[in-house]
Design a protein around this nucleic acid. Structure first.
Lengths: 357, 357
DNA sequence: CTGAAAGCGCTTACAG
DNA sequence: CTGAAAGCGCTTACAG
């Protein structure tokens, strides 16, 4: 039952066996050239045979190298609090790896301001970063930036939108289509096969909406694949900035005579706006499903106005993205290209123990 | 936007300021005595003032100390595959911290054999371990062992059952009562307020059943708190070893004339046995909810015989338990006493991207 | 009670 | 192309 501690193979051991010095082994290990092919080969053979794994601890201590990672994300505001969470996850990961010389620089931009994205992204190129974590909110600008990182050999991890056309290290995010299917499954399970289901998209003028569309697509796909009868699916787009107008639109769609809405699926975190409306109009028996554990949303989940929230696990998203970059950059390991996060179903009852808000 | 790298304070810096040697600072840092109160105080003051944080990397490299952690768990069998997953999580965590001198010794016992538990646990006491992760399957024996660890000052992290009467480092597990409430919530949402709901407990002769009872309690609690009408809740206990007899019991309970079972809640991972029965008897329209992502259970989730599985995240449970011990033992940080895992709701649709199986 | 020195495994100029 | 030496920050005997 006991494992004897296997004495670790060290660089000097290899050097001894190869009849060279530690410095030479190090040169081979890191492909720094200046080694004759012959020596190189001999050293390589021994490394392979002994299955040598460097002590990253000693390595980091000696190298004093520093890996500067840039986080290019929207900052969380009261309007868009969502973005606080990936940041929290990134910082959590940072704590674990800062010992290895990783540092984090924050380049936050305004979710609604394309220019601020441009400013921050070009700043990164000036600042000589070794890696970037980017949320691609403005698709074409993000693609340009990705391009420029590639030219400079700066690895990029994408979170949020998978615009990675062959040139990023990894995408860490949710499978939006599939999450729409999960939502539909919950809707169907609770509302049956008749009546009317409303799909509400809160959209904004510019910027990336891909995930919203994908969610709706997934939702429809689920219903489309059913063999039994299905309810009527009706779509409603509300412009983010509609403010109080949003209420009128909702009133028309939900409460006007002749409608018989049994359930509403809101394709993003703005579900609390619908919840508020339903509460004000005593329409709490309509099933309501949406996204993301914002405080407002949690409130309506707790009082049962919202039935289910689907969580993107944004904290874990941040955590995974920085760890992925660490594996790529520092440990030089291969990393998974597409890292899908779990699609978590949150109810009033399991909210409390749900860690990764 | 850039943060200048702050030069780290080192032991020599403190030594310099205090007018002593690095060795003395180290003695103060680790309470190894042999330091005059005067010097001690001076050094302490400087440490506080400069907010010194040791470089755990250099520390681990120099100390070559080794922390031997024992895992006292049932081994996974075909009958009880569940236990493979915590082990996987423990090993995952181990990989992250082995650099810091942590090693893991495995003491696995037979889930059904009390004696094997006794043998392995006393083995641990012989082997001079610095920490233990224990699954308390046999309650009173586990309590005895816990006692003996306390006498020897060996920290213990419990997973599974929270028998920790003041004397363990932490409990890492699920809130069973609450998970029963989640199950009930899903049941109610899909089955409405009438008909009959069956609660099935697969039990065994000896050993800890606490979590099963708690789950049932939570399930009943949810229905008890409803203001609307509720279905009839009926309980059924089946002895684990019933084998084919189990089928007869199920037949009586579910298919005999006059019953109108709308849903079944199985309080542990043996839900696949009920699923198999339902499938054989074309009773797939009965809602079925159970626990744990065993392969068998996944199979029936995918073909929609099982509607929901509640996952204990056993892999994360293992991961958290070893990390907790690491924080306590190596980093000497305070750790959270009760660490509840998320209560995950798994459907056919979100199964694929659910990582921590 | 305290300090000087050697060492943990790896890296990095420097000299040749 | 290669080796010897110093150093990363901390720890550990050892000598006094």
């Amino acid at each position: 039952m006991k494992r004897d501690p296997i004495p670790r193979i060290r660089i000097v051991d290899i050097a001894g066996l190869a009849g060279v010095s530690a410095g030479t082994v190090d040169r081979v290990l890191h492909n720094r050239g200046e080694v004759s092919p012959k020596t190189r080969e001999k050293v390589m053979d021994i490394i392979k045979e002994l299955n040598y794994e460097p002590d990253i601890l000693a390595s980091a201590l000696a190298a004093k190298k520093t890996f500067r990672i840039a986080a290019l994300l929207p900052y969380g505001t009261d309007q868009i609090p969502f973005w606080k969470y990936p940041v929290a996850g990134i910082e959590e990961g940072l704590l674990e790896i800062m010992h290895f010389g990783v540092s984090l620089e924050r380049y936050y931009f305004d979710f609604f301001d394309r220019d601020s994205f441009l400013r921050q992204s070009s700043e990164i190129l000036n600042d000589d970063m070794q890696g970037v974590i980017m949320a691609s909110v403005f698709t074409s600008e993000a693609e340009d930036f990705l391009e420029r990182c590639n030219e400079r050999n700066i690895p990029v991890v994408l979170i949020n939108a998978n615009i990675c056309s062959g040139s990023c290290v990894a995408f860490v995010g949710q499978d939006s289509l599939q999450s729409g299917m999960v939502a539909a499954r919950l809707m169907k399970y609770g509302s049956g096969s008749d009546g009317e289901i409303l799909i509400i998209n809160f959209i904004r003028d510019e910027g990336n909406q891909d995930h919203i569309l994908k969610r709706e697509e997934g939702f429809r796909k689920y219903y489309g694949e059913l063999k039994t009868g299905t309810p009527v699916l009706r779509q409603l787009n509300i412009v983010e900035t509609a403010g109080l107008d949003g209420r009128e639109i909702l009133r028309d769609a939900i409460l006007s005579p002749g409608t018989r809405v049994k359930g509403i699926f809101v394709t993003n975190s703005r579900v609390f706006r619908v919840a508020r409306f339903l509460e004000e109009n005593n329409a709490g028996d309509i099933i309501l499903i949406g996204y993301d554990l914002l405080d407002e949303n949690k409130h309506f989940l707790k009082n049962s106005t919202i039935d289910f929230l689907i969580s993107q696990k944004p904290r874990e998203q941040g955590y995974k993205s920085i760890m992925t970059l660490y594996h790529h950059l520092v440990l030089k390991k291969n990393v998974e290209r597409n890292q899908y996060l779990p699609i978590d179903i949150i109810t009033k009852e399991n909210l409390e123990h749900y860690s990764s808000e």
